[in-house]
């Protein structure tokens, strides 16, 4: 609803901007359609970098000649579109590469933690003997000591 209103307003008052935005932000739209997650991370990721690609041409339009001809000329320039879509592609690339990297980092951290815990257990067993580890059922009661 809000998007529609923005489009109508843009069409009425800033048609050249809309002429650049619609084809320029096409990858973001596709990302929005493909991204079914609650966080819409893909949309934000692609959209953010897509904006980075579109914004220089919008700035040029707004500051030089805000006309339909200038907008059409910009949008039909293959180099312009290459820059815009490359930026959006970089967004897609980031969205594909960063999560596995984060997962790998988390795995390394977990393995490091397990290693530290196992070292602690070995030290405990060395100080108190293997009977300290006899009770392996989590949540159970520790055995009573001999009552001499």
């Amino acid at each position: 609803m809000a998007g529609g209103t923005v489009l109508v307003l843009l069409a009425l008052f800033s048609l050249p901007t809309l002429i650049i935005l619609i084809p320029g932000m096409l990858p973001t739209g596709v990302a929005k359609l493909c991204d079914r997650t609650e966080q819409h991370s893909a949309t934000f990721c692609v959209g953010g970098l897509n904006i980075c690609g579109v914004f220089p041409y919008l700035m040029k339009l707004w500051t030089d000649n805000h006309s339909i001809d200038a907008a059409t000329a910009a949008i039909t320039d293959i180099f312009t579109m290459l820059v815009i879509y490359a930026a959006a592609g970089f967004g897609w690339l980031m969205y594909s590469v960063v999560p596995p990297v984060v997962s790998a980092v988390l795995n390394v951290l977990a393995e490091r933690r397990v290693s530290v815990l196992k070292t602690t257990q070995v030290a405990i067993v060395k100080e108190w003997g293997p009977e300290v580890a006899l009770m392996t059922e989590p949540g159970g009661q520790p055995p009573l000591p001999p009552n001499a």
């Binding site: 893909a42 990721c45 795995n107």
Partner: peptide, 22 residues
């Protein structure tokens, strides 16, 4: 679970980086 969590965190991180960059 950790893999799924890593994926999610990575996606959020990528989105954040993208927004900040823009």
């Amino acid at each position: 679970e950790r893999v799924a969590q890593g994926e999610l965190s990575g996606q959020q991180a990528a989105a954040t980086i993208s927004i900040l960059l823009s």
